[in-house]
Design a protein around this nucleic acid. Structure first.
Lengths: 198, 198
DNA sequence: AAAATATATTGACCGCGGTCATTTTCGTGA
DNA sequence: TCACGAAAATGACCGCGGTCAATATATTTT
């Protein structure tokens, strides 16, 4: 049988996350080095891996926390009343993910995780996000702002697909001409969510 | 001024690609090791990097070639006459990409590349694929099998988005219960491409 | 309190992708 | 054919993520 973790372990874990978070603020997610984290935290390399499995595991915790925070602010206030407002509510997430390729890659790797990693923050944040979108879409369907021939769940999933698509293209592009995510997303999501006119 | 590459260089490049291709057949894309390739090819490590930039560069060549071959067979024969037939035509690509995460990641990284890497095989294969899909979609629009309120180009781009979505989920999933790509794709693409009924 | 067991941490070590100053080979004009 | 500059190839070296047998620190048992 497995016993609950001891106090010492929780402290170590907290310190690692704390140090890593601060270092990310300085060098970005892609600039994070495991050696730097452990040395500043005053632990051995192996300790970090025993806590998070691998570097991605640590990043998943950090990024999961950030997404949760973003959702916290996105969730407050009234639900979007139009398609345009809905898209506005997506922008904070988009902006965050667009910040660094590493975020995008990691989200793509974890988003959709079912099974033993369900307890990971990042996985929970993923479900929370989809649930929120589903709710928004359902409400907009009820007021005839969106197509109603598809379930809110499916439409929300599709939103995810297009969001990822726009982000992926932005990372490939020549990095000049900074993508106008709002406009890009809008045109895809309108085609996907709005009732067909013609 | 830069002179054309010498014969020796072309031979070395060909040998590297040849060896790498054979090794991939044995150990898969994710199992490929640079050291193994160069040792079997009888060249030094640096040579490989001078040819392909990095490991991904080599993989891009190998994968690009495979996609081109797939497109060759996909392109022959009559264009799909229904949405179902269109989806059938996508399956070879899906199956190939689903084979290994590395393929998916690399495609996502290169697909959408514009600029100096335009001459890469993989980039060309990407454009060729989108062009083909656009053509198919246009034809199906003309026969009233698909929605006509969006340009063929946009619909084709959306197909890419959903295809990636389905693949991404399949890689995340618990790896048991092998995804039925055909069914998954079909439900998304029907919602995206078909005229709305309700 | 000492022995026995479970948990947590350690750090030398490894694999593998990638670099670059140096050396070898090739093409070309004197 | 020899010399000289450019192209090609070399391999010792590095950075960094990740491993694991050994060690240290808790917790329980007698």
């Amino acid at each position: 049988m497995s016993r609950p973790p001891q106090k010492r372990r929780l402290e170590t874990r907290a310190r690692l996350i704390d140090v890593a978070t601060r270092q990310v603020d300085q060098v970005g997610y892609s600039g994070l080095r495991v050696e730097d984290v452990v040395s500043e935290a005053g632990v051995a390399k192996g300790t970090l891996f025993s806590h998070f499995g691998d570097k991605d595991g640590l990043l998943a915790v950090l990024i999961g926390a950030r997404i949760m925070a973003t959702l916290d602010s996105t969730e407050t206030g009234a639900a979007p009343a139009t398609l345009d407002e809905l898209i506005d509510r997506l922008m904070p997430i988009v902006t965050f993910v667009a910040e660094d390729r590493v975020i995008f890659d990691l989200l793509l790797r974890y988003s959709g995780t079912t099974g033993p990693e369900m307890d990971e923050v990042i996985t929970q944040s993923f479900f929370r996000q989809i649930a929120l979108w589903t709710q928004w879409v359902g409400a907009l369907q009820a007021t005839n702002h969106l197509r109603s021939d598809q379930s809110p769940d499916r439409l929300a999933e599709g939103m995810q697909a297009f969001l990822n698509h726009v982000l992926a293209l932005s990372f490939c592009a020549g990095h000049e001409a900074p993508t106008d995510f709002r406009a890009e997303l809008s045109s895809y999501l309108t085609a996907w969510l709005a009732p067909q006119t013609a």
